[in-house]
Simulated scan of single mutants.
Amino acid sequence: MKDSSTAASGAGFTVTDQRGKKITFDGPVQRIATAIIPSPSMIAAVDGSYDHIVGINESTLTANKQGIFGTLFPKSKKTTTIAGADFIPNVETIVGLKPDVVIQWGDMGDDVIAPLENAGFKVIGLTYGTQAMMETWIKIFGQLLGKEERSTELLDWMHSEDKAVRALVKPYAKKKQKVLYLRTAADGWTTATGSDYVTHWTTIAGGVNVASDISADAPQVSVEQILAWDPEVILLSAFDDATPADIYADKKLADVRAVRDRRVYKVPLGGYRWDPPCCESPLMWRWVAQILHPELASRNGLRTRIKDTFDRLYGYAISAAQTDEVLRMDMNAKSASYAGFRA
């Protein structure tokens, strides 16, 4: 791996993507199109700007318009979309954008990658699911942008936060609370299994994912299954419009412990949604730790952490009102102990 000064000088370099394919560049890229939903916020964090992003996924555009990222980088609310939920690239649109590189899933088959490579684009294939995979993204983005020192700095910070959060929840190790993650589907809900990043942040925060042993990817979840699991905490995906109020109003779920105890919470939306791996993931670890252990509020200092993190990642001074929006204070206000996030 070239160091950042070498890359910045215009020297050529080679990136090995998560397919194991080597892609050579003459120098740092100037124009990036990416079909991968969380990647623009991560690229911006590594780059310190949004200047090199020319194409994004439709879901990313929605998040940019709904959350604070569009305030941080107004151009992100108008960026051309190059793919939708199926990740099939719109090659004609991408040709018009003239990207130096296209970032795409490397494990979803030829339908999403072959059209791009056949059109002559340099394609970086990424894979998803673990902290290690996400850290590789940050390293690759550092290479592409000539910002390798910056990517190393971000990874060192993540590793420090990992240790800090695990230490924070260690006194509660003997009692791991049962956590259920729910995402709205056309005919009910889906959840996240042991291979999903949800399990990673649940574990760091001192909980256990009740669906960790299911083998299917994003399995459907019935009311009967939720009742059988009887989770102590339910976390609602940031990818849809479901709210804690919706769950509390559902009479079929009235006997679930999390519902009885008013421990249903909507996942925050910061520079990006906090459920999947992203540069703000250390904030998600701390948020879940405090959800599971409200007594940690004064030691966790999440609002200060959010302020410091937005400055670190985006060079932005987030306000108290914006922090409320990120944490969805209004939406989560009637859930147990959520007032602790005002401290």
Results as ranks from 00 to 15, higher is better:
residue 241 D to N: 14
residue 170 K to D: 08
residue 155 L to G: 02
residue 317 A to M: 01
residue 233 V to N: 04
residue 108 M to L: 13
residue 232 E to W: 02
residue 113 I to K: 15
residue 173 A to P: 06
residue 325 E to S: 13
residue 71 T to R: 12
residue 22 K to T: 15
residue 231 P to E: 10
residue 307 K to F: 14
residue 94 I to K: 14
residue 74 P to K: 01
residue 57 N to S: 14
residue 27 G to E: 06
residue 81 T to E: 06
residue 326 V to G: 09
residue 47 D to C: 03
residue 174 K to L: 05
residue 86 D to P: 04
residue 19 R to T: 13
residue 18 Q to N: 10
residue 235 L to N: 09
residue 184 T to C: 02
residue 186 A to P: 00
residue 203 T to L: 06
residue 301 G to C: 05
residue 89 P to M: 12
residue 4 S to G: 10
residue 244 P to W: 11
residue 256 V to Q: 01
residue 325 E to W: 05
residue 132 A to T: 15
residue 191 T to Q: 04
residue 64 N to V: 09
residue 227 L to W: 03
residue 307 K to Y: 00
residue 206 G to S: 13
residue 237 S to R: 03
residue 33 A to F: 10
residue 282 P to M: 13
residue 268 P to F: 11
residue 180 L to T: 06
residue 148 E to H: 00
residue 5 S to L: 14
residue 296 L to P: 07
residue 136 T to D: 10
residue 322 Q to F: 01
residue 250 D to S: 07
residue 131 Q to A: 13
residue 285 W to C: 01
residue 195 S to N: 14
residue 165 V to T: 10
residue 128 Y to S: 12
residue 276 P to E: 10
residue 304 T to P: 07
residue 126 L to G: 11
residue 16 T to A: 07
residue 46 V to E: 09
residue 157 W to A: 10
residue 162 D to T: 06
residue 230 D to C: 02
residue 223 V to A: 11
residue 247 I to D: 00
residue 261 D to H: 09
residue 265 Y to D: 00
residue 259 V to R: 08
residue 72 L to C: 00
residue 71 T to E: 05
residue 75 K to W: 06
residue 15 V to F: 15
residue 193 T to W: 00
residue 163 K to D: 11
residue 200 H to W: 15
residue 101 V to L: 08
residue 25 F to L: 08
residue 70 G to A: 09
residue 95 V to A: 15
residue 119 A to Y: 15
residue 73 F to N: 10
residue 305 R to H: 14
residue 321 A to C: 05
residue 83 A to P: 11
residue 334 K to Q: 10
residue 35 A to G: 15
residue 112 V to H: 06
residue 201 W to P: 05
residue 229 W to H: 04
residue 160 S to R: 10
residue 289 A to M: 12
residue 162 D to P: 05
residue 235 L to Y: 02
residue 249 A to G: 03
residue 300 N to D: 15
residue 91 V to Q: 01
residue 258 A to E: 02
residue 202 T to N: 14
residue 133 M to W: 13
residue 136 T to K: 06
residue 18 Q to I: 03
residue 39 S to I: 08
residue 3 D to I: 03
residue 265 Y to N: 00
residue 327 L to A: 09
residue 56 I to K: 06
residue 281 S to W: 06
residue 69 F to Q: 10
residue 34 T to R: 11
residue 129 G to S: 09
residue 245 A to G: 05
residue 299 R to N: 12
residue 148 E to A: 07
residue 207 G to N: 03
residue 7 A to W: 04
residue 326 V to F: 14
residue 240 D to S: 07
residue 159 H to K: 05
residue 246 D to K: 01
residue 342 R to I: 12
residue 121 F to Y: 05
residue 30 Q to S: 14
residue 272 Y to K: 08
residue 116 L to G: 10
residue 120 G to C: 04
